[in-house]
């Protein structure tokens, strides 16, 4: 067995010492950590760039939509105002109280023994109309009070067919001092004043629930106003 002598042991020891240099090893480890951190930063930067692109795209989309939406909102508000006015106007026209049929109704009920001296009427309210009619006249015949009462009853019956809450009563019924010629005979007279109260139309609708309002809006928009009346 041959004997080997390492004449370079000092060189080898120095080389080994350099290899085990803690600062060097630390720097390697630190370099690795820095590289890892750099990679993580790059990933994070990529994620940020993606989100920023998305934001930029959405901002551009919103910038394009916003003026159009504002104009649409303005149009919608304007249309809703127009629709509200239209609905009120049409409702006002359709819910009017018509006096001609009332006058006709009274005229057909007055018998030949009665002369109407004054007829006055007034209507109040919107939606549900409270109407008051006063008929002043002179009745004649064998029993002028009965004639006046028959007129009152016939007005009550006739108006009850057309209107609600009909209340017909005498404000006064007095024997007249004068006699009138009726069918060639002198007849006694009675002066009377009949007060007729009744209701027409419908109660105005109370504020609808938000859901109901949408439905009503749609219905009102679809309904053509009937202006032929």
């Amino acid at each position: 067995m041959s004997l080997r002598l390492n004449l370079y042991h000092e060189i080898h020891q120095a080389r080994s010492a350099r290899k085990r240099d803690p600062l060097k090893i630390s720097l390697y480890i630190l370099g690795g950590v820095v590289a890892g951190f750099a990679a993580l930063y790059a990933v994070e930067l990529g994620r940020y760039a993606s989100v920023a692109r998305e934001l930029s795209r959405k901002q551009a989309e919103f910038a394009k939509l916003e003026p159009e939406a504002a104009a649409a909102k303005k149009r919608e508000d304007s249309f809703q105002e127009t629709q509200k006015i239209n609905t009120k106007l049409v409702k006002g026209i359709e819910d009017r109280f018509y006096w001609a049929p009332v006058l006709q109704q009274v005229a057909t009920l007055v018998p030949r023994e009665v002369q109407i001296n004054k007829l006055s009427g007034e209507v109040q309210g919107t939606g549900l109309r409270k109407c008051q009619l006063t008929v002043d006249g002179l009745s004649a015949g064998g029993d002028p009070r009965r004639v006046a009462e028959e007129l009152r009853q016939s007005i009550a019956e006739s108006f009850a067919k057309t209107f609600r809450a009909v209340d017909v009563k005498f404000r006064n019924l007095d024997d007249g001092s004068e006699l009138v010629m009726l069918d060639g005979r002198q007849s006694p007279t009675a002066s009377f004043a009949i007060s007729v109260n009744f209701e027409s139309g419908e109660e105005p609708a109370t504020a609808p629930a938000p859901g109901a309002r949408k439905k009503a809006r749609g219905a009102a928009a679809n309904s053509e106003p009937d202006l032929s009346k």
């Binding site: 026209i93 006096w99 001609a100 006709q104 005229a107 007829l119 006055s120 007034e122 009346k229």
Partner: peptide, 23 residues
């Protein structure tokens, strides 16, 4: 009465509030 009917039919924006007819 006929004239009132005509008024009510021809003028939809008009509504009669009160009537007083006196002999």
């Amino acid at each position: 009465g006929a004239a009132v009917a005509e008024l009510e039919n021809q003028e939809p924006l008009v509504e009669i509030q009160s009537v007083a007819i006196e002999t």
